[in-house]
Write a protein that binds this DNA or RNA. Structure first.
Lengths: 134, 134
DNA sequence: CCGTTTGTAACCATTATAGTTACAAACAAA
DNA sequence: TTTGTTTGTAACTATAATGGTTACAAACGG
């Protein structure tokens, strides 16, 4: 299972999208998520580096860096999730065994398609679609 | 990222499929995976409970419990992976905030489709397809 | 009855996540 | 220019899962 970082990041981005007027602080965001501001800020840094939000010292989050219709969940996922592969594959297998020698290659090929399909699905969902649901 | 349990289990099942004649021991399997027998046996227990392999005390793995063409990766995944959801969702959000109040529901709906699609893909791959690759 | 192997329990090490405190640097506003 | 606020970041902790390891009673084939 992937961590909740994608979920929390989407939460943050939705809040930003719904408050285009004034800046919102990490403290206020943390209040909606029910966590603490430092955790929010760590995610904010990654979202900012990925070009998804704008922040300013002394102000907070000053808005999305691009329209909600142009932000896909794949971009958010790539921005915040450290390990992006779907399934872990055991390495250091016994190369003297036919299975041990090829299992990594076989599984990589098998999983790659699923990984790619998942990414396509993430890419098909945009922040704008989610924002309308609140 | 899901753990390597699915990968290791597939490794085990392929070995079993390729040795229909005699029984193979967890010790021998561990030699191919390059891990230790106890870890293999822990997976074997789950695979046996799921009706995928046959084991016997004093002998080892005596074969697949059904034809390789009838064993899908979804069955293996369900048998061995403890946490099957794709993305974790943060709970205990602030219900006084519109986003906090609905985020869990919105994300669940969004992720559910991806989860289902992934499971369909896992279900479409059968052990027999992989066995031919070694 | 013997020898082998499973099934299982009880550990340990490592890693990632999430939570928390603290504070210097940046910056808006007065 | 000064003040007050907030970010960006470091450091630390708790917790949980994974993977690795040892050990041994029970089961069972030969």
């Amino acid at each position: 299972m992937y961590s909740s970082k994608l979920s929390v990041s989407i939460h943050i981005l939705c809040l930003a999208a719904l408050h285009p007027d004034g800046p919102i602080t990490s403290d206020w965001i943390a209040g909606s998520i029910h966590t603490n501001p430092a955790l929010v800020r760590r995610l904010l840094v990654k979202l900012k580096r990925a070009g998804l939000i704008k922040t300013q010292t002394g102000m907070g989050v000053t808005g999305l860096a691009k329209p909600a219709g142009k932000i896909s969940l794949l971009e958010v996922f790539r921005a915040v999730e450290s390990e992006q592969r779907l399934f872990d594959i055991h390495t250091d297998t016994n190369l003297n065994c036919p299975v041990g020698a090829k299992i990594e290659q076989v599984l990589t090929a098998t999983y790659d398609k699923m990984q790619t399909n998942l990414e396509h699905e993430l890419d098909a969902v945009h922040l704008s679609q989610l924002v309308t649901l609140f």
